[in-house]
Amino acid sequence: MHEMGIANQIVEIASSYLPDNFDDRRVERVNLKIGKLTGIVPDSLRFCFDIITKDTPFSGAELKVEDVSVKARCNDCDNEWTVDQASFICPKCNGGNADITAGRELDIVSIEVAE
């Protein structure tokens, strides 16, 4: 995967949310939501994040990842289910017309900074 690029994007976006008078305070935690369908490896992401945040307000910050399970909704019978094996065929009606409703997230939820 491209965890280094993702880590860069996270820092870029999160930096734009730091207050103007942040000075030499520190970011303690970055809260992320990552869907299981994205193929992102959280440990690799943390590794890249630690490297690129040296000597920045994000140095030492925890990357807290909330895993999001893959879910799909059947357009034929409206059944919504958690996709825990690689199949998007509706387990209820065997239909093949489903939409992914969760599992592709790659979101920054919030950042936590020292008081």
Binding site: I13, L32, D107, I108, V109, I111
Partner: peptide
């Protein structure tokens, strides 16, 4: 906590 809620 500073809310962000943005897609990476």
């Amino acid at each position: 906590e500073i809310k962000v809620v943005r897609k990476v």
